[in-house]
Nucleic acid binder design. Structure first.
Lengths: 203, 203
DNA sequence: CTCACATAGTTAGGACAACTACCTTTGTGA
DNA sequence: TCACAAAGGTAGTTGTCCTAACTATGTGAG
């Protein structure tokens, strides 16, 4: 058989296209896993995502508007979701005296419990990553961070909590290494954060 | 300030966790980009995905059941989607004589046109990848393929079209290199396919 | 000080996604 | 030939996520 038989246009694919295709497949896996998890707990995907987010983030991020940005949805959608979660007794609202318009969302015991259980929904994706060599992990992370940085800059992803887009981040003058002005330390690849609680967006 | 102030539990994150978080962020980007594209063309995300898929795949894959597996949805959902696309004159159905139950889905001119235009929806993700070094690209691809392979094996992703899950694939006896028995050639990293038209699932 | 504007969140209404359950027709193999 | 599997479709439901319009509260310029 002539080998050119196999050279269908989309198969002569560049490495870049294959990377995009792979990322797309992995995206699908996240969707599938989240969906499975949501059926198990009788919650919607977005409800689970909100619960998990609340488990890991500080007060000023536990608000409707922030969540809307975080998940690229409208405030209306998040407002609905929060209402539902409240009816299910998974969260409570804490109104602050200095701004009565907004409130902080807190997990109830039950909510925390579910959030912890569901936060492992991506364990299937984690397993193969655990098995990579340390060097491979570092490399992979750096490459992914590079992609996200670009997505941040181009406005596809609005929320920014990683070092590369932080006001405290710089390349040190001496050796051009990533450096955090808040922590006062050089950031080796494994120290780079993708979800830093101290993140301050660049001006 | 004491440095331990920053060591919030979720911030002492392992490299693996950060990789998962990064992949999750990129997944979100795909969702956002697809959603933007769908608004622009007055189509739903799944409709666009189906159109793009039809652009690139052969007849035996252009059927309702295959699409349902491909996108991890029920046949009912795809059936609906196809009906809508037909009403919009973007696809036609070709019934085959030897099995009148099923049919092949073809793009109309208009459908092909839209499929080609929307197939670039992920260009924002591609740009930063283009800028990586050749070695980095190869490395990244191999790591992603490793993850997908695991997701295939564990059943999260049902459809398989990549070399690692193919009956024609083996590690050659001499040098343990990936080898394709159909193409009769060694598969260097850049030759590994993620969406091969000749893919034959392992028994 | 006040008035226009911005911001936080909510409500209502609608399009559509995607499911389950059930059905028809057709193919297949013991 | 007859039971069963496979391809696809229909109906009805639930939930997502949007837009548009709204309330109420904070803010800042003149």
């Amino acid at each position: 058989m002539d080998q050119s038989d196999f050279n269908l246009s989309h198969q002569n694919q560049s490495t870049e296209s294959k990377i995009v295709a792979s990322l797309e497949r992995i995206s699908q896996a996240f969707r599938v896993l989240l969906w499975q998890e949501s059926k198990e707990f009788a919650l919607s995907p977005i409800q689970i995502q909100v619960l998990i987010f609340l488990l890991n983030h500080s007060d000023e991020k536990r608000k409707v508007s922030y969540l809307a940005d975080e998940f690229n949805m409208t405030k209306a959608t998040i407002s609905d979701t929060v209402k539902t979660l409240e009816q299910k007794n998974l969260i409570t609202k804490e109104h602050e005296p200095h701004d009565t318009r907004s409130y902080i969302i807190h997990l109830t015991e039950k909510g925390k419990d579910i959030a912890e259980k569901t936060s492992f929904f991506s364990k299937e994706i984690r397993t193969p990553i655990d098995n990579l060599s340390a060097e491979n992990k570092e490399n992979l992370l750096l490459n992914l961070i590079g992609i996200i940085k670009h997505l941040n800059n181009s406005g596809v992803i609005t929320i920014q909590r990683m070092c590369m887009t932080c006001a405290y981040f710089q390349l040190s003058d001496q050796d051009n290494q990533p450096y955090c002005k808040l922590l006062n330390q050089t950031l080796s690849p494994t120290k780079l954060r993708v979800d830093c609680p101290e993140h301050k967006p660049k001006a």
